[in-house]
Amino acid sequence: MNDRNFLASIGGAFLEFLGATGRIVLFAVTAILYGLRPPYYPRLLLRQMVDIGFYSLPVVGLTALFTGMVLALQSYTGFSRFAAESAIPNIVILSVTRELGPVIAGLMVAGRIGAAIAAEIGTMRVTDQIDALTTLSVNPFRYLVAPRLVAGFTMLPLLVLVADIIGVFGGFLVSAYKLDLNGASYIQRSVDFLQTQDVVAGLAKAAVFGFIVALMGCYNGYHSKGGAQGVGAATTYAVVSSSILILVFDYILTEAFFSR
């Protein structure tokens, strides 16, 4: 009897997972279809872009800087044992552009923007503001969801581009001024080693991550219920689920881009 209950709970959780996946995909498709058709709301899109792109710069820039610095320091402690310090620029620039830039920016934006989107849309839901939009002939998917998805999708790559530069610069700072490597040859090696594909793949990842963050924020906010507590739960779900999805999709996309 207990065994059956145990299996039933596993099966139930799995079904719930599949159901949620389906609902999220449907939500995204609905938003995209509505977003493609007019009327468009350029003002709202611009505001979301500034919010996601511009106001996230300090957070993303700082984390990228320290990530690059720590990367150089860590690789030095390992590589100096084999007199391989000259590989540090390669390690830093590859790790930052391919992996750490997009992932770190994605996670920071998930905390900053995903939470804010979920809280704002969630509050609008529990105070009937979303229903009010509908009664005023404004489609909430078009007005609330689509601009955020577009802003997430387009702005995160730009953020990551900046993060890449700052991250590599962080590695350079530590290498040149703390580890006493030759600055000129550090830059030379970085530039020689880097391929366009590394950066492009990282930016493509960033676009997907940006979409995920905005989608999970909107989805959880849109479906929140039960007042302040519900909005709090929606915010938590939005951040946790988008962070997990970023890491999952990071693996999937790396597999797609780099395994031949």
Partner: peptide, 19 residues
Amino acid sequence: REPMMRKFGMLFQGGALFD
């Protein structure tokens, strides 16, 4: 339903004003 919605006006219980 969209053309139908244009015939409607609604006063929500809590106001539901866009803050």
